[in-house]
């Protein structure tokens, strides 16, 4: 194992471990408002300080990590798989699926999103649990976020269609699903991986923005997106640089996952 991979494992373990144990190790409940310590700087009681409602930043960060770090990659995985399926079959199966893909991804990309998401919000009961709302949001993001990536996948798959190794695989008698799944997909992996990586932070931020529509995270549940939104207030950063902690964690996580999941073919 390379040194980078080792470091990545350690980083992930350091982030995920405490996050999973958030219920036990967080110094305070994530929703508890310490009304006498509003926007407090770091102290022994609140190692990362408190937010504008006096809630312990460390506790919120731990809980947010647990929620976002499980849900965002899951949604990214969902959308990447859909993109892989749609893009590859469009590139592979000839003119009709290609046309259908073009039309459906165009449609999806120019759809009035607001309207669709509003409809979803209207269909949900008002008192939906914060966690359920969050899961639904990520599911939506995953299920609807494939259109853009699938075009990239289709372009990559179309160029691979004429590659020597796929020709050779055909000459070896490989065909159909097996050719797609065992020969094409691995070759598309770098493209898919890139789509996956870019989707994670995108979804984390998209979730935060969906708050405008009443979707996504609902008070008092914390999520990375919600915590990152606080960064909009730049004066808060100057007062307490630990506000940046979620951004740093996000970066560290994306880096670590990138190192761990990247295959050796990158050396080629």
């Amino acid at each position: 194992m390379s040194r980078a991979r080792m470091a990545a494992w350690i980083v992930l373990a350091l982030i995920l471990g405490p996050a999973l144990a958030a219920g036990w190790i967080a110094p305070a409940p994530y929703h508890r408002q310490f009304r006498e310590a509003i926007a407090a700087p770091p102290s022994a009681d609140h190692p990362l300080g408190t937010d504008e409602l006096g809630r312990d930043r460390l506790s919120r960060l731990l809980h947010a990590t647990r929620v976002s770090l499980l849900l965002a990659p899951a949604a990214a995985l969902l959308s990447t798989l859909l993109a892989a399926f749609a893009g590859a079959s469009a590139a592979w199966l000839g003119r009709f699926p290609a046309g259908a893909h073009q039309v459906s991804s165009d449609l999806l990309l120019c759809l009035p999103w607001m309207f669709l998401l509003l409809t979803v919000r209207a269909a949900l009961p008002l008192d939906v649990e914060p966690l359920a709302s969050l899961v639904i949001t990520f599911l939506l993001l995953g299920a609807l976020g494939w259109a853009g990536p699938s075009r990239v996948v289709r372009a990559a798959a179309a160029s691979l269609r004429n590659s020597d190794f796929l020709l050779l695989a055909r000459a070896q008698g490989v065909a159909g699903w097996r050719l797609l799944s065992r020969h094409l997909m691995p070759a598309l992996r770098p493209v898919l991986a890139a789509q996956f990586w870019t989707s994670i932070p995108l979804f984390i931020l998209a979730e935060a923005n969906l708050g405008i529509l009443g979707l996504g995270v609902v008070e008092p549940l914390p999520s990375w997106g919600g915590l990152l939104k606080e960064l909009e207030n730049y004066s808060a950063i100057a007062e307490n640089p630990f506000v940046l902690a979620p951004a740093a964690l996000l970066l560290a996580c994306v880096w670590a996952m990138h190192v761990l999941l990247a295959r050796k073919e990158r050396a080629a």
Partner: peptide
């Protein structure tokens, strides 16, 4: 207003009332 809602949520929890918060876009 979001902050007020969160504060009210905790205030009412003190007398045992559970408040769900639902921010909605203005037209809705």
């Amino acid at each position: 207003r979001a902050r007020m809602a969160a504060l009210i949520q905790q205030d009412l929890a003190e007398i045992g009332i559970r408040v769900h918060l639902a921010p909605l876009d203005f037209p809705s």
